[in-house]
Design a protein around this nucleic acid. Structure first.
Lengths: 172, 172
DNA sequence: CAGAATATGTCAGCCATATTGACATATTTC
DNA sequence: GAAATATGTCAATATGGCTGACATATTCTG
């Protein structure tokens, strides 16, 4: 199971092979995501919300006027699952809906002032965490980090994500 | 809310600021993780398992002889939550336990042959996805990717993670 | 215009996975 | 011998997913 099986398993300085290196990176991704995603938990708990509420507030905040169907696609959940949490956000005054101008079947989603305030509070620790990591990782790390993450994303999704994040085609 | 608020919000080529860039990266992390983590779902479903089973099999496979308490720390769940899933894995012959040699209270965890086979199947698409992304992202991207991820992880956890992933102190 | 398709919402029941709290057993440490 | 530790289990509960069925309003299409 070690070395000499061709280019795919060339050894590295540390004595591992490509496969081990890749698994180590997968674990880093697991732990980084775990810690990153738990940052807002304390704030959410104060108001009886969960991560599902945060996700909705985040994407509505980033894309005001988002359609319900788009949000379903982003979150990859069913409308029934979304429905329960979204209803709560609307009832408690964090999100409101507005009829689409061109298509009145649509219920476009927006944050209220209260919603934007909450989003700012929830995002703050996550932004600080990531920004600090980027600064410490040295110049060029941000671009490389983005390049790898983008290519981990499903190929068919990259265009949509690139557009959402305001990172247009170009060298991308 | 734009520009000229000091070094922290210097503008970039694309016209965004640091804050927007960081949020875009956070979204890339979200989508990359979402797609990465769903790769094994189809295989898991075949045998009636979920992601919780995969996580246990992964970390036991990576660290044979892992103690139950260590696994609880890695997964950040309670022993009651772990218990149900671990019991299933043991009953179905994917994991076995062995009394600790020095401390007979410990139930050290190991994968059976069947467990290792399943782990290989589950990991394959994830390894392929990440390796392809690294290759496409160009030379140096892997190191930068690792540096950023590592620094996103809670500071108090980095030592443990570094040890687990076989990436010792050094420049890291 | 009628009928099909689309966008959304809601009810009901179920499942996977997490939680807290209480308690039990075996073993090791003091 | 008592306390601390490592593990396991029972019961009740919460969150956030799922499927299936059905309802409404609106737009598109032949």
């Amino acid at each position: 199971m070690s070395g000499a099986k061709g280019v795919k398993e060339r050894r590295t300085a540390a004595g591992g092979d490509d496969r081990d290196d890749t698994i180590a990176l997968m674990e880093l991704l697991f732990f980084a995501y775990r810690d990153f995603i738990s940052d807002p938990d304390a704030i959410l708990e104060e108001i009886g919300f969960g991560r599902a509420h945060h996700r909705i507030i985040h994407f509505v905040g980033r894309q005001p006027g988002l359609r319900v169907s788009e949000l379903l696609g982003i979150l990859r959940i069913t409308k029934q699952s979304l429905g329960r949490v979204l209803r709560e956000l609307i009832d408690k005054g964090y999100v409101f809906q507005q009829e689409g101008a061109h298509d009145r079947r649509q219920r476009l989603l927006y944050l209220t002032g209260k919603g934007r305030e909450l989003l700012a509070r929830l995002s703050a620790p996550q932004i600080a965490r990531v920004r600090r990591a980027l600064d410490e990782a040295g110049p060029g790390a941000e671009a490389a980090f983005a390049r790898v993450l983008e290519r981990i994303i499903d190929e068919g999704e990259r265009g949509r994500v690139r557009q959402m994040t305001g990172r247009e085609k170009r060298s991308g």
